[in-house]
Amino acid sequence: MDKFSLFLADYKGLIPDFNGYLQGLKRPLPLYYRINTLKIGTEEAKSLLRSEGIWFEETCFEELVLVKNHDPPPSPVLSYHLGYIYPQALSSCLPVKALDPKPHERLLDLCAAPGGKATHLAQTMKDMGLIVANDRKLGRITALMANIKRMGITNTVVTQARGEHFTWGHKFDKVIVDAPCSGIGRYRMDETGHIRHMKPGKTDLPAIQKGLITKGFDLLRSGGIMVYSTCTLNVEENEEVVHYLLQKRRAKLTPWDPPVPWSPGITRFKEKEYDKGVGLARRFYPHKIHSVGFFLARVVKA
């Protein structure tokens, strides 16, 4: 059995409306555009998108639209190159909403490239305060810098370091650890039943994720908030990583009411039982939110 078949067998009883999930895998990933309110008003951007042949639907987030053209949609060349839009999944907006950054705050995005969340943070903060956007890989940092430029952002410092070794002169009010992951939330099935978007790799992701979540937490000031997120759906890269942090540090999860359907974090899986607090994490299934499957935990430093 391949890895994904094993995943399906293990999670059959845990994923709500499992048949709906399987059916959803056959539909293409929906395309969303986030409007960059640093450069343009939402209404103005929407009318430009319409004039570029994009049909869209509003979403629960004012700055995000769901593209309705049948694929492939026309390319909104002006909107894109003038930095008015950023193609971004609805799920990818969730960490920024959960973090609720304020204009004067100092933020760290530990795994930032290519910058979907960092640039969303910047617009939410009205390009004020400070964002440190870090990533390990130079190639991806090039894309991050291009996006920061295209979106016209001035409040961001870009750094290149392994997150586990990241240092800075002060602690941060808020931290995002949008960790590298196996990406099961992005999986889609083609006509032949073959899974697309599957990442190869033998890396021990949970070990990396545990290092990153702990470092992210250590870089928080007391009372600060961290969001840990992935676009994968297995317990080993999600609840187990959060459980590890709760064991190692004086961390607490705080509840958050997302504006889209969610399920609570899993506290019991096979023979393992996790800290009850892990139940305050949020799981987002692709067929329920019409986007990439996602996991998010909002952690506060006591």
Binding site: I141, M145, T154, V157, V158, A161, G169
Partner: peptide, 11 residues
């Protein structure tokens, strides 16, 4: 700015 990791600041 940290010397070892700094890449760029601002626009």
């Amino acid at each position: 700015f940290p010397k070892s990791s700094f890449v760029r600041c601002g626009l």
